[in-house]
């Protein structure tokens, strides 16, 4: 997958998830220099899985906002666990 191809797929995934511009930038910051292997992983993991992308986008934002606060990070970790448990039960 070349860079142009990846960017197209990335935007398509963002569009189908209806992601906000600031959230798109957040992912761009992480992915733009990540290399082809990571790009493939992103497409494999989030392509066609709107709920997963929305959850983890929110998760990143919360972690940034927590700014290292242990209590907040613990709360986020609890959310992750709950989400994963739901995922395994087919609720998410």
């Amino acid at each position: 997958m070349n860079e142009d191809e990846f960017q197209k797929q990335l935007e398509a995934i963002f569009d189908e998830t209806d992601l906000r511009q600031e959230d798109r930038k957040l992912w761009h910051d992480r992915l733009d220099n990540a290399g082809e292997h990571i790009h493939k992983i992103f497409v494999d993991v989030f392509g066609g899985d709107r709920g997963l992308l929305l959850f983890f986008t929110g998760n990143i934002r919360k972690r940034i906002d927590a700014n290292g606060d242990r209590v907040k990070l613990d709360e986020i970790a609890e959310e992750e666990k709950t989400y994963f448990a739901g995922l395994m039960k087919g609720n998410e």
């Binding site: 910051d29 992480r30 990571i38 993991v45 997963l52 998760n59 990143i60 940034i64 290292g68």
Partner: peptide
């Protein structure tokens, strides 16, 4: 997804 979301924090940019 956890790896993708968390590995870069808080630095930004992988």
């Amino acid at each position: 997804a956890t790896v993708l979301a968390l590995s870069t924090l808080p630095a930004g940019g992988v």
